[in-house]
């Protein structure tokens, strides 16, 4: 079986799972609540994927990711309610506004390393959270914003569960594909180089500051897109959705799945969203489950469920998206 053929097969299988099997199962269950959980799991898979680029691949511990998610959600909600824009415009605009803020944040803080960077992002995340909570004239403060219009695209009404799910799944799949190409390529390798030793990478000609800012901006963009998806699917956003706890939840997803591994981040997101839902009959243990899963995974599987090495191997050989052979079958590297 050729590499390309196997890669196509895996991709088709994955898409069939997301676009055929999952909606079929959800329709069979028929509860709208399950649709919301599925949307939420996909949105968090995108959030975990975007944090994976900054924290896993580029090695910058990010403790304020939920704030960029919030910026995207508020941008989408305000554009939809005040300007009456539809999803086709709010989605990219929300991503761009989150990316702009991420780059503005990144410019002064990129000199910092390790824990100092983590604390700076924590502080900035909290500042943005305070703005969402207290700038009542624009964000309506703790009351949050309602989106009555629902999801619309090119005149089609997408507010029923199935179309909403398909829109969310398509956006998340496209975004994850971009993140996959970014993290499993020469570009991703340059980011990994500055994670391992940024001074060494600098000496070898990698423009570390530019790369860090780009990675931060791209990660902010996709967090903003996830925020827009959340605003449109939930129809109601309020500041607690974007607090420090959410940042930690996203970080836990990335750590549980494996730092530096994109399939791991997606798997971690599914586990940490679906596990608390599965535990719901036994009482309200959703948040404590996050802590327990995070602690157990650091203690017992410190490399994560899908470690970085196996994730890279999978991406390069099985997906073949970044691995090329020349005509004679010799491996010529990946680009």
């Amino acid at each position: 079986m050729s590499d390309r053929f196997r890669a196509r097969l895996i991709a088709i299988g994955f898409l069939a799972l997301v676009f055929v099997a999952a909606p079929a199962a959800l329709t069979a269950f028929g509860k709208s609540y399950y649709w919301q959980v599925a949307d939420l799991a996909l949105i968090f898979a995108l959030l975990a994927g975007s944090m994976h680029l900054v924290t896993g691949v580029a090695g910058l511990l990010q403790l304020g990711h939920a704030a960029f998610y919030g910026v995207g959600a508020y941008a989408a909600a305000l554009l939809a309610t005040k300007a009456g824009l539809s999803l086709a415009f709010t989605l990219p605009l929300a991503g761009l506004s989150a990316a702009t803020i991420a780059v503005l944040v990144a410019l002064p803080t990129m000199r910092l390393v390790s824990i100092y960077f983590a604390v700076a992002t924590l502080a900035i995340g909290q500042m943005l959270y305070l703005i969402m909570l207290n700038w009542v004239e624009v964000t309506k403060g703790p009351n949050g914003i309602m989106l009555f219009s629902g999801m619309k695209f090119a005149g089609l009404d997408l507010s029923r569960p199935l179309p909403t799910y398909l829109v969310v799944a398509a956006t998340v799949c496209v975004s994850l594909f971009v993140l996959h190409r970014l993290s499993h390529s020469y570009y991703g390798n340059a980011l990994r180089a500055l994670r391992e030793d940024d001074q060494c990478a600098d000496a070898m000609g990698v423009d570390t500051v530019r790369l860090k800012i780009e990675a931060f901006g791209v990660s902010g963009f996709f967090a903003g897109v996830a925020g827009a998806l959340w605003a449109h699917t939930a129809g109601f956003i309020s500041p607690p959705d974007f607090s420090f706890q959410t940042s930690i939840l996203i970080l836990a997803m990335v750590v549980v799945g494996g730092l530096g591994s994109l399939p791991g981040a997606v798997l971690g997101a599914f586990i940490l969203i679906l596990l608390p839902e599965a535990l719901r009959p036994f009482g309200d243990f959703r948040n404590i489950a996050v802590g327990v899963v995070l602690f157990a995974s650091i203690l017992f599987v410190p490399k994560g469920l899908i470690g970085e090495v196996s994730a890279l191997d999978f991406a390069r050989r099985q997906l073949a998206g970044a691995w090329r052979r020349d005509g004679a079958g010799a491996e010529i590297g990946w680009r």
């Binding site: 511990l61 390790s114 824990i115 983590a118 930690i248 970080l251 836990a252 750590v255 309200d284 243990f285 948040n287 404590i288 996050v290 802590g291 327990v292 995070l294 602690f295 650091i298 203690l299 410190p302």
Partner: peptide, 22 residues
């Protein structure tokens, strides 16, 4: 070592806070 203890103390702080809340 630094990052794993940071995460483990974060995890324990979540567990402690949620246990107190329950």
């Amino acid at each position: 070592m630094r990052e794993s203890t940071l995460m483990s103390s974060l995890a324990l702080s979540i567990i402690a806070r949620e246990a107190l809340e329950i």
